[in-house]
Structures are given as structure tokens and as C-alpha cells.
Nucleic acid binder design. Sequence first.
DNA 1: CGTCACTTTGAGGTCATTCAATTCGCGTGG
DNA 2: CCACGCGAATTGAATGACCTCAAAGTGACG
Lengths: 234, 234
Amino acid sequence: MRANDLPEVRALPLFRSMEPENFSELMNAAYLQRFPRQVDLIFEGEPADFLYIVVEGCVELFSRHAARETTLAMVRPVRSFILAAVIRDAVYLMSARTTEVSRLLMIPSENIRAAFEKDAAFARAIVTELAVGFRTMVKEYKALKLRSGTERLAARLLIQNDAQGGTGRVVLPYDKKTLASLLGMTPENLSRSFAALKKYGVGVDGNTIDITDIEAVKRFCRPSVLIDADEDIF
Amino acid sequence: MRANDLPEVRALPLFRSMEPENFSELMNAAYLQRFPRQVDLIFEGEPADFLYIVVEGCVELFSRHAARETTLAMVRPVRSFILAAVIRDAVYLMSARTTEVSRLLMIPSENIRAAFEKDAAFARAIVTELAVGFRTMVKEYKALKLRSGTERLAARLLIQNDAQGGTGRVVLPYDKKTLASLLGMTPENLSRSFAALKKYGVGVDGNTIDITDIEAVKRFCRPSVLIDADEDIF
DNA sequence: CGTCACTTTGAGGTCATTCAATTCGCGTGG
DNA sequence: CCACGCGAATTGAATGACCTCAAAGTGACG
């Protein structure tokens, strides 16, 4: 299945300012494919043959080493992943699998690199995307080194709260096992961290979290734009 | 002091393929400056006014949050730092200070962005630089999440050993306090980690380390190109 | 030769993981 | 419709990793 008729993809910062004919060319080479949940898409160490874009569903980026495994990121629509490997024509550093039924757009790496050489606006967009990706990674790294597990959880709850309207009620977008791995802790520890946040007014009922005293949570984890803020891509 | 006559800078992957007149223009706007050791260069949170290039000496990138501090990277000649902030016209995410007497080239951000718009080869070089930076960051992040402190130390010793000729004798390029912070542990713990590596044939005398049984160290920390390898920029 | 920063070592405590057992919710199949 | 099984989530206890505090040793440098 090929797809040229995806306005969401065309609207992505990465493709928005491309020349129409270059975008068409790219889309003609691309595959739009449905995947069930829990399908392995790529393995770290493999050559980067495709740039992926999550059109629908959710993809988990993770890594394994010596019997340990950790979640590096969750990718939701509409975003691309593993751009850096494609640009470098290198090996993937992360593995990827779907966590829900998903629709993914797969664009062959050579086409991305060809379009990059040809289309100056696309090249600029790639620069922005990589710079944002780099800074996001730096923030994750800083969070891991500068905060405790419970603080990281609290900070993430505050971000989710903002993203979900700031009502004080947050619905976790994936299961707690995954959240724990993303935060760099075990599921058991995540449970205990939730329990520890109770004294700051955080209530847990399944995957819906209620934050009654946002200021107290802020005092505890000290959110910072230098660690927590998402970057707008514009 | 301004400097147009720095062949090392011109030879950098970032500038190598620029148009001569664009490079000249950039250098005419740049400052080459000497700094004593332990001088604060930039603070996280400040707007990114300059791109920095370490021509001589050494610069530590670090971050503080809530009374904690951690070293994020050490930059040695001849390399640039904080390119992503400059490109994004954003705020620095890391602070920087010299750890030795250093010569730094400072290029105003606007000039970098102007050259980026004008010079396609420069734009391509920036893409490569950012992609490499991103992948390096991912590797650090993975190492922190997937390895213990002692394993991270062992892996770093192996990398340094390769970089220093593979003789089995490594000279630490900075003091142990800094190394500890870079590895994400305390100085006390670094000492204990060195002691723990003794049984794999690692001997410590001041800042020179002797690795008598490289295979044993490898079996212990399981080095991987997906975590440890430096990326060539070419 | 004294000072000061770096490093090492020890003791004690905290945080996080592992292992084990239990509970809960959900979907499957009888 | 209910019993059952399964995976996810929680809780407890024990272990291990890492940090803090304190003190002593080492070396560089004025």
C-alpha cells in the first residue's frame, strides 16, 4: 500500500515546506502499512533502511544490553523516529515495536537522503528536527542524572497534566510497566513512588491520577524549562 | 583578538566544505580568546549568543539542578559545543567552564545562522554534526540506564585504551572527581569501582591505569558498538 | 614546610532492585 | 454466565547499589 494522500504527514514540520514535487516523489517511494500491536519493527544494530512516521497508534523505542532492557521513548502520531540513523546512513541505536494497532509510513532512507540533497527547505527542516531531538535527549539525560526516580515521576505527571488541559486529572497514556521503564525504574518501584507522592496530594486509581495540590508537587520536584519543557518545532 | 588564520578550524568537518568567502566572513565576525582555567563561559538558561570551538585546552559542560551538579561532557580540541542551541536560537541547556588554560573561538550565533541559510555545504555539515551529536547523546543515555556505575567505568577505560594506542596503559585525561561526575557517580564511589575492577586485572596508580587482562574487563562490561563507539564525522 | 584540594577508606543510611506472594481486572472458553 | 487463567499491579522482606558523612592519607604548589 502506498499513500500520497496524507495531509497530516504533509503538515509535519519535517515536510511542510518541501517543494511539492519533491514531496510527491518521496511519498511515491513510501509505504503506508498497518501493524498489529506488539510487532517488532526494527532491531538496534540493523542498517537504517527506512525513516518511520507514526500516523496512527503508538511505537515504543527501547534498547537491550546484557539481559537488561529499557524504554527510551514513546512515539505518538504524528511524529517520525530514527531520523539521525537515516541521515547518517548508519545502524539503528534503538529497537522499535508497536504497542497498539498502528499505521506507519515507511520512507526508504535513500529517498530521504536524496531529497535532503535536492531540497533546501527540507534540509533546513531536518536540521531543526535534529536540533530539537538532540535537546530533548539532553533533557532526558539531565533528568536521569539530576533527579531521583520519584522526582522524575512527579515532573512527568506535571507535564502530562499540562498536556491534558491542566485540570489536575491525568490519564496515563500507557501502562505502568512501560512508564516505569521509561522513567528508568522497575514497576515495583514505580508503585512505591506513587505511594510516596500521596503526601503531596497525588491520588492513583488505575491509570487515572489526581493531583489535588499541584504547588506541593512542584515544590517537591522543582520543574524547570531546562529539563522538562517540550520544544515547539516551528 | 580576531583570527582568520586557524587551519585547524578550517579543517573541522563543520567548516571544511564551506565556500571560502563564507568561511572568511564567519571568521571575521569571530573572536579568538584565551581563558584561564576554571572560568565560567556560559550558564544554562541564557540565550545562545555564540557558538564555541575549543581550539586549545579543555571545556567542561555541566548542569545544576536543586543543589545537585553533574558533568555532561568534556570537550577537547578541536571541537565545537552547543551547536543545537545556536541553531534553534534558544537557551543553553548546559553550562560551560574551562578546566585548563584554553583558547576558544567564539562565533556569533546570527552569523552561524546566516551562513547556514547561504551555504548549502555548511548546512549539510551542520546536519551531520547534529546527527552525530544526537547519536552520541543516545549512547550516553543508554549507558546510564543499562549499565551499573562500575560497568560504565570499565567501558570507558576500554575506550580510552583504544584511543591511547591499545597498550593497556591509560592516562586519565582529567581528575577523578570530574570523571566520577561524568560517569554519574560520586568520587567515593569511583574509588570503590576502581577497587572492584582490581579482580579483572585493573591497576591504579594516580591517574595512570594499567589493564593487564583486557578480555576479562570486556567480559565484565560487555562493550558494544551500540553504546560505546565514537562516530566518525566524515 | 604548611596549606589546600584531591583521593581513599570506613561506617552508616537511603534508595532501588530482586524475589516472592497476593490481589485485581480482564478476556477466554467451558 | 461463571470459572478459570493470565498478565498487570501492588505489597512485603531481603539484598545490593549507591550516597552521605567523617577522617585520614597523598600530592601539588606557593
